[in-house]
Design a protein around this nucleic acid. Structure first.
Length: 316
RNA sequence: GCCGAGGUAGCUCAGUGGUAGAGCGAAGGACUGAAAAUCCUUGCGUCAGCAGUUCAAUUCUGCUCCUCGGCA
């Protein structure tokens, strides 16, 4: 087991709620330890959504040597960043896709002798990658417009349908959560395998160090930072970004369901929009805190401590 | 100063002669293919103050204070 540990590729996870400063922490660590960032944020994968997703100054540059087929790469403050700006705002991205893309990116980074830093606030993306969730392969896009008329059924009917397809699922699915019930049904129908048999974890593929900025634990401070950041986004022209996206892709598109975007839809008073964005962001941060809190592997640290831990982690 | 409306949970407000509730917020929690999504749990608060009527008042009456409209 110990020997196997040593053979496993090493990855470093930098997670935490929005506004905790994971990106700047990660950038500093990457500069010091020859790292590259893999984005683990479900919204930053979208092109043209820059201000509202807090992407920062991502620049595209041509590569001298192509790495896994791409002629150009993106950089954030001089550090290469992967899985940002990879799909159009009217498409849907999923955890399953993220896991595939992230594994590719990790292999690529390591093949070039660099250290992969997984950076983002989407807890499920990180867990799926680190804990190696076993997803059956099927095209989720195609079944989301399925013919099963799931949308018209009542929750009660859906639960009955699920019971028929996969009785075991009733024990693992939150039956009050319509979205989860719908999804379990979709997975059963699309794969032909019971949903309850598809929630397994594989063996870990990577040796992992999980870090989060200290502020992640201080709610009041975090909320203050969030409020400030929203003000800055507005100053940077968030309204124009949202309006042009809405014009181009429509309010129904995937892009417009995110925080910082949807709030503009039915409200023209910019002050009210701003307050709503702040509130939605605070609520979101709180959900993230709840998510990360139960993961006991995460070390909450400042920059100095982080440098020590990473150095130690890479040495072994 | 006069007339009107009102003072009930952090906010907006319902409501009842036997000491109160809904929405929002907030807090806590869940989370295996939309996850910035979705869902679950949690409401004693001098019912503005004082006095009166009453077996009983947050609910009725009177006064006081405060807020908001209209008139001066």
């Amino acid at each position: 087991m110990v020997e196997k540990d040593n053979e496993m590729p090493k990855i470093i996870v930098v997670c935490g709620p929005t506004g905790s400063g994971k990106t700047s922490l990660a950038v500093q660590l990457c500069k010091k330890f020859n790292g590259e960032i893999i984005n683990a944020d479900s919204r930053q994968v979208y092109r043209e959504m820059d201000i509202g997703t807090g992407k920062g100054e991502v620049k595209s540059e041509k590569l001298k040597v192509k790495s896994f087929g791409v002629p150009s790469a993106q950089y954030l403050e001089g550090v290469r960043i992967h899985l940002v700006n990879i799909i159009e705002p009217n498409n849907r991205y999923t955890v399953g896709q993220f896991k595939i893309n992230a594994e590719e990116a990790i292999a690529d980074i390591i093949s070039r002798g660099k250290v992969p830093f997984i950076v983002g606030g989407t807890g499920m993306y990180i867990d799926a990658l680190v804990d190696n969730f076993q997803f059956s392969s099927f095209n989720f896009q195609s079944i989301s417009n399925n013919q099963f008329s799931i949308k018209e059924k009542s929750l009660e009917e859906l639960v009955k349908l699920l019971e028929k397809l996969d009785p075991q699922a009733l024990n693992v699915v939150d039956l009050k959560n319509r979205r989860r019930v719908e999804h379990a049904i979709e997975v059963c129908l699309a794969t032909g395998i019971p949903f309850s048999k598809q929630r397994t974890k594989g063996e870990r593929k990577y040796k992992v160090l999980k870090l989060a900025p200290l502020v992640s634990l201080e709610r009041e401070k975090l909320y203050e930072k969030i409020n400030k950041r929203v003000d800055e986004m507005i100053e940077q022209g968030l309204e124009n970004e949202v309006k042009s996206l809405a014009e181009k892709y429509g309010w129904e598109s995937e892009a417009m369901t995110g925080i910082g975007y949807r709030e503009f839809r039915d409200e023209s008073d910019i002050e009210k929009v701003k307050d709503k964005i702040k509130q939605d962001t605070r609520n979101y941060a709180k959900r993230q805190m709840t998510w990360f809190k139960r993961d006991k592997e995460i070390g909450y640290i400042d920059l100095k401590k982080a440098e020590m831990l990473v150095k130690d982690f890479l040495k072994k």
